[in-house]
Simulated assay, not measured.
Amino acid sequence: MNARHTALSLAVVLLVAAVAPAAAAPVGEDAVGDLTVTTAPATASASAAAEAATPSDSTDSLVAASDVAVFRLNASGVPAEADDDGTLLGDELTLSLRQTASSVDANATAKTLDATAESDGVAVRATESAVYVAVDLATAAFQQGNGTATAAVGDSFTATATVTDAVTDGENYTRRATFGVVEPSVNFVDGVEEATAGGSVEFTAATLLAPGTSLTVALAPNEGGETRTTQLTVGPDGRATGELSFDGFDAGQEYTVRVTAEETDLNATVTGTTQAAATDTAASTDTATSTDATTPSETSTSGPGFGVVAALLALLGAGAVVGRRA
């Protein structure tokens, strides 16, 4: 009886061992890489931004105040599941933001945020190769003195992420990154101020908005008339390209191009005046005299042709816009 009882007990122990998950190996220092900042559109929730983040997302040193900042810690071995009490963020991993001294207003205290699973506007997701913590800058409540505040244009922060000894080999491994908060903005790399009446203009808009942001570009005559809109998406390099049709516009007609984006304070406008389409000069039909035949005609060489000038201006304009993304 005792032998059968012992055998049964041993079988149960072996069965439990077989189905129980193996204990995770501790996270070593060499498994913890850099902390970088990426961004997600203002229309995304913190949880959606954390879920959508990937290792290939471009990094940013500037984040629009309306966007979601996503902090990517390149670390392998951090548990993908939170503890029963939901403390993956705050236990195994901590993330804090502290306003840099240079951006703190006079007679004010620095804004700080200790991100936890319970923080509004904060979400976390762990993968095999990285941990992502998303912070919605427009809604996350920062501590400032005895009150709370949100991140504002002109603020800069140092983000500190630490993989704690709860999952390491007994050490805390800390990484840092800095970023600035900027106003949402759009600038046209290719000018749209002098479009040709009846033609179209291809343009590039350089933005400080997160990749994936949807832009609405509206073209309207200033004296009333139909407003034409087109939707563009900001690419990984922060730029969006599109085309505006000026079909039906008369020469000398003033117009406004307005760019907006949902859930942002963006309201960029450019005004312009349509130009008359170029016309070909009729070729001379005068009959050359015998003297003309032996005398070379004069050709103006006062400057480069329009195409060359336009190309140079385009190159200068493109060079003046410095991308912030790596």
Rank of each mutant, 00 (worst) to 15 (best):
A218R: 04
G224C: 03
T279S: 04
Q231T: 14
Q143L: 02
A123E: 12
G248R: 05
A25C: 13
A151V: 10
G305E: 06
G33L: 02
T178Y: 15
V259Q: 08
H5W: 08
L316I: 09
D34I: 11
A65T: 14
T299Q: 14
S297H: 02
A44R: 14
T43P: 04
V12L: 12
T229H: 08
E243H: 01
S9D: 09
F246L: 00
E193G: 11
T285H: 04
G303M: 03
G77E: 05
N107C: 00
A141L: 15
A11D: 05
T260L: 04
R258Q: 11
L113M: 02
R175A: 00
A161K: 07
T213N: 07
N187Q: 14
F188H: 12
T38D: 05
A48K: 06
T227E: 00
V257C: 01
L313K: 11
K111W: 11
V70G: 05
T158K: 10
S129Y: 15
D105H: 05
L73R: 14
P236A: 14
G198F: 04
G77S: 06
R258V: 12
L209E: 00
G170A: 15
D250Y: 04
S200E: 06
E226M: 01
T207C: 03
A101L: 12
A64G: 06
D190H: 11
A31L: 07
A25E: 11
L73E: 12
S45G: 12
T299K: 05
F71K: 10
D237E: 01
N222S: 14
F203T: 07
A123G: 15
T260A: 02
N172V: 09
T109V: 15
A42E: 06
T264D: 07
V182T: 10
A293D: 09
E51K: 05
A283F: 09
V13M: 06
G28V: 15
